[in-house]
Design a protein around this nucleic acid. Structure first.
Lengths: 221, 221
DNA sequence: AATTATTTTTAGACTTATCTAAAAAAATTA
DNA sequence: TAATTTTTTTAGATAAGTCTAAAAATAATT
């Protein structure tokens, strides 16, 4: 049986899971407080609660680890968040820089049937509009290997699956030049001097992008 | 400027609005408590809060009235609830007796853009799957006059717009015999003895229904 | 009108989630 | 290693939303 978590508890768990994934080690109180724009004292209270519910393991002054049960619960929230983001872009014509705030609310709706049907409506997507992988009902990722556009060889091509930078500025820039998750990109030419490159999008128009941009777009075959 | 209401406050206001519409007079503390499965003491606390926010007017021991501002806020929640119910049935293949609980959660999501786009996706529906009218952005209903199937004359016909009874049993029965919101119904024959009738659905099959059923199905021209 | 029953409100307590200020522990620096 | 700084925890407070038990007001009945 899965634990019952409140709105706030789900938010904490999700953030802690992400921090733990990034760092690979135990997550500190301050790191959590920073991420959630809250105070360290509030975090201490909450991690005690989550710990007593079995989703975290916590030792005073030593930070927290996410338990197996916690991972399952966190991945379900992440799954819901990413499915809703996909829905907002694919069905409601949101721009991909407009979806986060709304998905933060929608991710807490409790209805397994709703998520099952949403997943079906969207055709069981594997990636959200930012290219982040969507875990399946069991919390598994079906990820193909991917690499930054920067590493592509001349005349080679790949499909956009992720962007590393989530800022509205970057996403709007990509929209403007016609790059989206799923777009096919072929490397035409590369300037060794500054790392900038000319690429072709969907076998149609070609554009020039900087090294910085090419490092933030990730491709798969 | 519209007032900012919490999840719980929105639920109270919505229920009070419905009760006030039904009765036409001020709403009693106990009536609200019954409807929300809560205690009278909790209701007293909440109506004081809602009153101080200006959405209700409240006099001790005299019940509450919904203010103009309260009506606007309540109708926005009702609009969201009914749009989500319509979405669940039209796009996610929910049965109309499965939608209420989920819509109760979804109605509290805060995003004007989301509702605008959802309304567009659904083609600006005027009625939800139960036939209840959906108020527009300004809280207005565009309702045609309607009357119970029971009052139809022989050989006359109408379109189903509402069902009075919302119980799963009744809705499942209607599904079974092929009646839905939007179905065309023609009265073939009526038995004066018990008020039962033979009707034709969508110019195709004919079925017999009891007086009780015919009183719960409402039609428009 | 007086009594009884019902409804509503108040008083006080509890939970969740948050905060500030102060104390304790851990990490860093001299 | 001792002193200092940073991090974390504790203690106590607050607000939202709920509850029970008792008091007060209103309505119904004899």
């Amino acid at each position: 049986m899965t634990v019952m978590l409140s709105f706030a508890e789900e938010n904490y768990l999700k953030v802690i899971y992400h921090l733990a994934e990034q760092s690979g080690e135990s997550v500190s109180t301050n790191a959590i407080a920073d991420e959630l724009n809250t105070k360290a004292a509030s975090v201490t209270d909450m991690i005690k609660r989550l710990s007593s519910k079995g989703v975290l393991s916590y030792q005073k002054y030593k930070g927290v680890l996410v338990s197996a049960e916690g991972k399952t619960a966190a991945l379900q929230v992440i799954r819901k968040h990413r499915l809703w983001e996909t829905f907002l872009v694919a069905k409601l014509k949101f721009n991909w820089d407009e979806v986060h705030e709304v998905a933060e609310q929608l991710e807490h709706i409790k209805s397994p049937l709703l998520i099952k049907r949403l997943d079906e409506l969207l055709g069981h997507p594997k990636f959200d509009p930012h290219g982040d992988p969507i875990p399946d009902e069991n919390g598994e990722f079906n990820e193909k290997p991917k690499s930054p556009l920067f590493e592509l060889g001349i005349e080679q091509s790949g499909i956009v699956v992720t962007v590393q930078d989530d800022s509205p500025e970057f996403l709007q820039y990509l929209d403007k030049i016609g790059i989206y998750i799923g777009a096919k990109i072929k490397l035409i030419d590369k300037v060794e001097f500054d790392g900038s490159m000319e690429i072709q999008i969907d076998n149609r128009k070609t554009v020039f992008i900087s090294k910085q941009v090419s490092e933030n777009i990730w491709l798969t075959d």
